[in-house]
């Protein structure tokens, strides 16, 4: 890659303009290339005067209360020994976002859920093939059916991908639903491979007719925030199975 392209990639990363393949290239460079991280840092500094020009908005106690409860619920801070034992590079910041181990830490809950999901599969396989209560056909953004989701009376749910559902490298897809149409989405499960998956919705009320289900692309361990963070690639509403 030419030097100019390299620098342009760094600048467009800071601007948030990278899409598709270039975004992946920049992500890899951030994780692996100190020169690239330095260029990114330079562009951050060049543009940082803009951040100072934003209006200050009242940040109330309610937002703080949410932060505090998330912090309390979050796993203990990353292993400090390892952070201290090796010299921090200028790219520490970027690696926060790119490093898998970080997402693992943040997504511990998600990973645990995925594990339970996996363990549960064998059990559910035994008593599969019962009549679904609700069925949702999830459409992709080309409006083609991308997956069929069935829910069962006992709280199980089965997701069958159709056609060529692809999951970006180093990512997962996460299934969400909206038990309350006006409320936030609730995670149903995380999938790392595009194959039939069974999940449970034990903690959720029995889905109602027209309940919305969506699938978003997320980091490998699932969304770090408990809400969709990546693009929504499929969506559909449930109907009663006849």
């Amino acid at each position: 890659m030419r030097r100019d392209d390299f620098d342009r990639l760094a600048a467009e990363h800071v601007l948030g303009l990278l899409e598709g393949e270039e975004r992946g290239v920049a992500d890899n460079l951030l994780a692996s290339d100190g020169d690239f991280r330095n260029l990114v840092e330079l562009w951050r500094q060049r543009f940082s005067a803009w951040d100072e020009t934003a209006d200050e908005l009242p940040a109330g106690d309610a937002l703080w209360a949410r932060i505090e409860s998330s912090v309390s619920a979050a796993p203990v801070a990353a292993p400090r020994a390892s952070a201290a034992s090796r010299p921090a590079s200028p790219g520490v910041l970027e690696r926060i976002w790119e490093s898998l181990s970080f997402w693992r830490t943040v997504g511990l809950a998600g990973a645990a859920a995925a594990l339970l999901m996996g363990l549960g599969m064998g059990f559910f396989a035994i008593k599969a093939s019962r009549q679904p209560v609700m069925i949702a056909v999830l459409l992709n953004d080309a409006n083609q059916p991308g997956a069929v989701l069935s829910t069962f009376e006992d709280g199980r749910m089965e997701l069958v991908p159709l056609g060529d559902m692809t999951i970006p490298h180093n990512h997962s897809v996460q299934v969400w639903t909206f038990p309350d149409p006006a409320g936030p989405p609730v995670s149903v499960g995380v999938l790392r491979a595009a194959r039939t998956a069974r999940m449970t919705m034990d903690d959720l009320p029995q889905p109602h007719s027209n309940q919305l289900f969506t699938i978003s692309v997320e980091p490998l361990a699932g969304s770090p925030t408990g809400l969709p963070t990546g693009p929504v690639v499929m969506k559909g509403t449930a109907s009663a199975a006849l």
Binding site: V71, A77, V92, P224, T225
Partner: peptide
């Protein structure tokens, strides 16, 4: 607010990796 919330959670978890000498 979501973005600010998430940022503070990150800050809490990754504060140890911030090195004042380097940035």
């Amino acid at each position: 607010e979501e973005a600010v919330h998430d940022t503070f959670v990150q800050v809490w978890q990754k504060a140890a990796s911030f090195d004042p000498a380097r940035g």
